[in-house]
Design a protein around this nucleic acid. Structure first.
Lengths: 189, 189
DNA sequence: ACTCCGTTGCACACGAGTGTGCAATACTTC
DNA sequence: GAAGTATTGCACACTCGTGTGCAACGGAGT
């Protein structure tokens, strides 16, 4: 079936997200399938990881682009971005998990454009005075969205209120005053 | 020698910090020694990792306790803590790196008391109104000090100005207004 | 019934890391 | 120079994950 391939990718996303060192056997049995079957769809573990990462990065980039399309102020764009990112943050954990590890370089390269887009967004916010200058845009963007993943991780029973909490926290990191941050989150369409 | 043992631990701290999956051979050659020699000091890779983690956690806890000893306001204690933590953050990265991986459970258990102390400190700050309530103390503390490590990571050419930048950023996360944050950092003894 | 086709169940070869045993070197210390 | 100790060099057995080959099984469609 073609279902199997998709399910393998979904399961691998989950399994590798929790343990980047999981083997083909672990993924196979988690998918209710024998190890040999996996090799029928992905000739190599590296192929599986690459395909998986590519798909995750693509979805990730799509979310970012979608938010970045609006020509609102950087603050609003950021809020929009996080609100779209949040429901998927748990899935994308695999990217952070894989970033350290055997294929770290490869993933890092895939994530390059995303990091750049993120830094650009933060830079715009800094130039407009909406975001603070306590850190360079490149680092600040990393810290801000790493925090979102961190909150998602520490929150396995993810309530919906966490979404706004994560957004507010990321805005605080960016140097937005608390009053303004809560206001932004409240007036979100 | 007894130097060798200490040097092995230091080197392992460095090597495993960058790649948690590094083998005994990697550590040995990084220490300028043959693999066989390492087994003379640590019968098992697990022993090495455990000893190493224990030492790191002990130092980490010492820093936290030292800061926590002062009965100043939570804000000041936090600033003190981060300023002490900063020069060591690079070394302690091994703890975060090892937390995901083969011995994850073990490290997590070792880190338990540290996490608790951290959460307590943040809780005190929230009760006194100095820190915000956008997240529960347990999560907020994790996010705040994870950010410090994140900044340390993204800053391999670590200038000293990063220390205050990291402190300010962590204070922002905790909900301290920017003006107050910079003031706290400036008036630091 | 016949035939695809995905799946299974082994067997195997291979590489890499682990941990051990033991003789051969240095290198210090007396 | 002799004794003691840390280190080395090499061989070995063992485990574990990877990737492949091939025969057998089972269900869906004709």
């Amino acid at each position: 079936m073609d279902d199997t391939r998709k399910r393998l990718l979904d399961v691998a996303l989950e399994v590798l997200g929790q343990n980047p060192d999981a083997g083909m056997g672990d993924i196979a049995s988690a998918a209710g399938v024998v190890r040999r079957t996996v090799y029928g769809y992905f000739p190599t573990r590296a192929d599986l990881v690459r395909t998986l990462s590519q798909r995750a990065v693509d979805e990730f980039a799509a979310v970012l682009d979608e938010a970045n399309a609006s020509h609102d102020a950087a603050e609003a764009v950021w809020v929009d971005f996080i609100s779209r990112l949040w429901p998927l943050a748990h899935r994308y954990r695999v990217l952070l998990a894989l970033r350290r590890g055997e294929y770290g370089e490869e993933i890092h390269a895939l994530l390059g454009p995303v990091d750049e887009a993120l830094a650009t967004l933060v830079q715009k916010g800094q130039d407009s005075g909406a975001f603070g200058h306590h850190l360079p845009a490149k680092i600040l963007s990393q810290v801000a969205y790493a925090a979102v993943f961190s909150i998602a991780d520490n929150n396995i029973a993810g309530e919906s209120l966490s979404a706004s909490a994560a957004t507010v926290t990321s805005l605080l990191i960016l140097g937005v005053p608390e009053a303004r941050a809560t206001e932004l989150v409240a007036t979100q369409h």
